[in-house]
Amino acid sequence: MKLNINNETSRLKAVVLGTAKSIGPQPSLDEAYDPKSAEHIRMGSYPKEEDMVREMEAVAKILEKYEVKVYRPRLIEDYNQIFTRDIAFVIEDKFIKSNILPDREKEIEAIRHVMDEIEPSKILTLPEDAHVEGGDVMPLGEYLLVGTYRGADYKDFITGRTNVQAVDALKGLFPHKKVVSFNLRKSNTEPRDNALHLDCCFQPVGKGKAIIHRNGFLEEEEYNWLVNLFGKKNVFEISREEMYYMNSNIFSISEDVVISEKNFTRLNEWLRTQGITVEEVPYAEISKQEGLLRCSTLPLIRE
C-alpha cells in the first residue's frame, strides 16, 4: 500500500473505520477518559453498543457508496475500538504510531493487518516522551497544524493528549513543512470548555473553507492566524453548544462531499451553500464519548 495524505479534503481512497462491536461494559466514572463521557455516565445516558454499531455501519455504507476501500480493526472482546484516529495518523507517505494512553495500547495491534500492507520503513514511532493523538494532527499542504497544550500543568489533564515534545518531534520528521501548533483549552470536568483535540474546535472543509470555534483556543492570536489563513468569509464559526455536539468533527470524502451528523442543521445548510454534498448520518450516540466522524476514521490514501 502506498500511503498518501497531504490534506483533509482530497478524494479519499482508503481508510480505517473503527468498530463499536464488543465495546465492553459501561466504564465507571473513574475510568472515563474525558468529561463528556463522564457527564453521560452520571446522567445514565451513556450510549448503548447496538446504537453505536448502527451509527458506524451507516458511515461504512456511505464510504462504500463512494468506492472507498474500508479497513476495520480486528475485534478485541470487551474493548472500545471506535476512535481509530487516536491511535495513528498518516502524513504524506508515513504512518505514525501515536504514543497514547497506556490503557489503549491494544488498539494499534488490532490494525496490524493494515500495517502489514505498508512498507516497514514508512512506519514511524515517536520518542517515548512525545505524546500525540491523531485528532490533534492536520496536514494542510505546506502546513502541518498540531493541537497541543503548553501549560506546566499538562500532566494534570487527562484531556491533554498531545504535548510540546510531540510538536518538536514532528518538526524533526517533517523539516520541509511549516509546523504550526495551537494551545487548546482543556477541562477535565466541563465538556463545553474542553477542546479534546484540534479537530474538536477546527477543521478545513471543501475548497479553502474551515469550521472553527473561537473559545477552543487559549491564544487569541493563534485563532486569528487560522481565520486569516482561510479568510473570514470562508470560515464557519460554531457556538459553544455546537462544539459540545462536535460540529467541527465531520469527515471529508472529497472537496465536494462530506459525511456529517444529521442534527447539525445550521452547519449542514452552510455546507450546501458552499456547493458541498452532505451525506447525513446519525452519530449522536457516539458523540457522547467526545468524538465524532473524524475521530473514528484513519485516512490512509487520498488522491
Score class of each variant (00 low, 15 high):
M1L: 13
K2P: 08
L3E: 02
I5M: 01
T9M: 02
V16K: 00
V16N: 01
L17V: 12
L17M: 11
T19G: 15
G24T: 10
P25D: 15
A32V: 06
Y33N: 13
Y33W: 12
S37C: 10
A38N: 08
S45L: 02
K48I: 00
V59P: 02
A60D: 15
L63N: 03
L63S: 01
K65H: 10
K65M: 08
E67A: 08
V70M: 00
E77L: 05
D78M: 04
I82D: 09
I82E: 10
F83D: 11
T84E: 09
E92Y: 00
D93M: 03
K97W: 04
S98L: 12
I100F: 14
P102H: 14
D103S: 15
H113I: 04
H113P: 02
V114A: 06
E117D: 03
I118Y: 01
P120I: 00
L124N: 10
T125E: 03
L126W: 08
E128D: 13
G134A: 01
G134W: 00
M138T: 15
M138G: 13
L140M: 11
L140N: 11
L140C: 13
L144P: 04
L145H: 04
V146Q: 08
G147V: 05
G151R: 01
K155L: 00
F157D: 08
I158C: 11
V164S: 10
V167I: 05
K171D: 08
F174M: 09
K177Q: 06
K178W: 09
V179T: 06
E190V: 12
P191C: 06
C200T: 14
C200Y: 11
C200M: 15
A210E: 02
I211E: 09
I212A: 01
H213P: 09
H213S: 15
R214W: 06
G216P: 03
E220H: 13
L229D: 12
L229A: 11
K233D: 15
F236K: 10
S239P: 09
E241C: 11
E242I: 02
E242V: 05
E242G: 14
Y244N: 12
M246Q: 14
N247Q: 14
N247V: 07
S248W: 07
N249L: 06
S252W: 01
I253T: 04
V257N: 03
E261D: 15
K262L: 12
R266I: 00
W270S: 03
R272K: 14
Y283M: 13
I286K: 11
K288V: 04
E290V: 00
L292T: 07
R294V: 07
C295Q: 04
T297D: 13
P299V: 05
R302I: 05
